[in-house]
Deep mutational scan, measured.
Amino acid sequence: NQESVVAAQLIPINTALTLVMMTTRVVSPTGIPAEDIPRLISMQVNQVVPMGTTLMPDMVKGYA
């Protein structure tokens, strides 16, 4: 089963992602794949992401 990127903390809107903000977990439905974490660093979220929420492609500016 593929791991997806999950918020390790509350991420406010327009925050640039850092490694410490993200963790990985096997979730359903699947979100952004864990191997894309290096690509996500410094990208901004376009909404508030509560802790434990799976990051979906449409939540990250410039990802999709």
Rank of each mutant, 00 (worst) to 15 (best):
P57F: 09
L17K: 00
A34E: 14
L10G: 11
L10T: 11
P57W: 09
V6K: 03
I37H: 03
R39K: 14
M51W: 04
G62A: 14
R39S: 13
I11Y: 01
E3S: 04
G62F: 09
A8W: 04
M59Y: 07
L19M: 06
M22G: 01
V49C: 15
G62R: 07
T24Y: 08
N14L: 05
S4R: 02
M59V: 04
I13G: 09
E35Q: 11
P57S: 12
I32E: 00
M43V: 11
S28Q: 14
V60T: 02
Q44K: 07
G62V: 05
V6F: 02
I13S: 04
I32F: 07
S4E: 00
I41M: 05
V5L: 04
L17P: 02
I13T: 07
S42T: 05
D58C: 15
S4L: 02
N1G: 13
T24W: 11
L40R: 00
P38N: 10
A64Y: 03
P50H: 08
S4D: 01
T18F: 03
R25I: 05
A34W: 07
D36K: 12
M59N: 04
P50V: 10
D58S: 15
N46P: 02
S28W: 03
P57G: 13
A34F: 06
V27C: 04
P50D: 14
P50K: 13
D36L: 14
L55S: 01
A7L: 02
V27T: 13
V60G: 02
S42W: 08
I37D: 00
T30Q: 13
V48G: 11
S42H: 11
L55V: 08
G52F: 15
L40H: 00
A16Y: 06
T18K: 12
Q44D: 04
I37Q: 07
M22A: 01
D58M: 14
L55C: 02
M43E: 05
T30S: 13
I37C: 05
L10K: 07
D58F: 09
G31N: 01
N1E: 15
V6C: 06
T18H: 04
V60A: 02
T30W: 10
G62L: 11
V5E: 01
A16I: 06
E35C: 15
A16G: 08
T23V: 12
I41G: 02
S42R: 07
P29Q: 11
M43W: 04
D36G: 08
Q2I: 12
P29T: 11
E3K: 03
T54I: 11
T53C: 09
T30F: 13
I13Q: 12
P33D: 08
I32L: 05
G31H: 03
V26N: 13
V5I: 09
Y63Q: 04
Y63S: 09
T23I: 13
M21D: 15
P38Y: 04
I13V: 12
I41R: 05
T23R: 10
I13H: 11
V5Y: 02
I11C: 02
E3F: 07
M59D: 03
V60R: 01
N46F: 06
I11V: 10
V26K: 03
G52D: 14
S28F: 12
V26M: 13
D58W: 10
R39L: 11
L55N: 01
A16Q: 10
G52N: 10
I37F: 05
A34I: 08
Q2L: 15
V48N: 15
S4T: 07
A64L: 15
I41E: 07
M22F: 05
L17H: 00
N14R: 05
L17R: 00
I32N: 01
V27G: 04
R39F: 04
G62S: 09
D58H: 15
R25P: 02
T15G: 04
T15M: 05
G31V: 10
P38D: 05
I11A: 00
M21A: 11
P29A: 10
L10E: 09
T15E: 05
M21N: 06
N14D: 12
L40A: 01
Q9F: 03
E3H: 06
D36Q: 15
P12T: 10
T30G: 08
V5F: 01
Q9N: 07
P29S: 15
I37N: 01
G31P: 00
T53K: 12
P57T: 09
V6S: 05
V20K: 13
E35D: 14
L55F: 10
L19K: 12
S28I: 04
I41W: 13
M56Y: 10
N14T: 04
N46A: 09
I11D: 00
P38E: 06
E35A: 14
S28K: 03
V60S: 01
Q2G: 15
I41T: 10
E3N: 06
L40I: 08
P57L: 03
K61S: 09
T23W: 14
S42N: 05
V27Q: 11
I41F: 06
A34K: 10
M43T: 07
P57I: 06
D58Y: 12
G62M: 08
V48Y: 09
N1Y: 12
M21T: 05
L10M: 13
G62E: 08
T23D: 14
R25Q: 14
M51E: 11
A64N: 10
S4A: 03
G52R: 05
M51R: 09
A8Y: 05
N46C: 09
R39T: 09
M22S: 01
Q44M: 05
P29R: 03
S28M: 06
A7M: 03
G52T: 06
E35T: 12
G52W: 14
A7G: 03
M51S: 06
S4M: 03
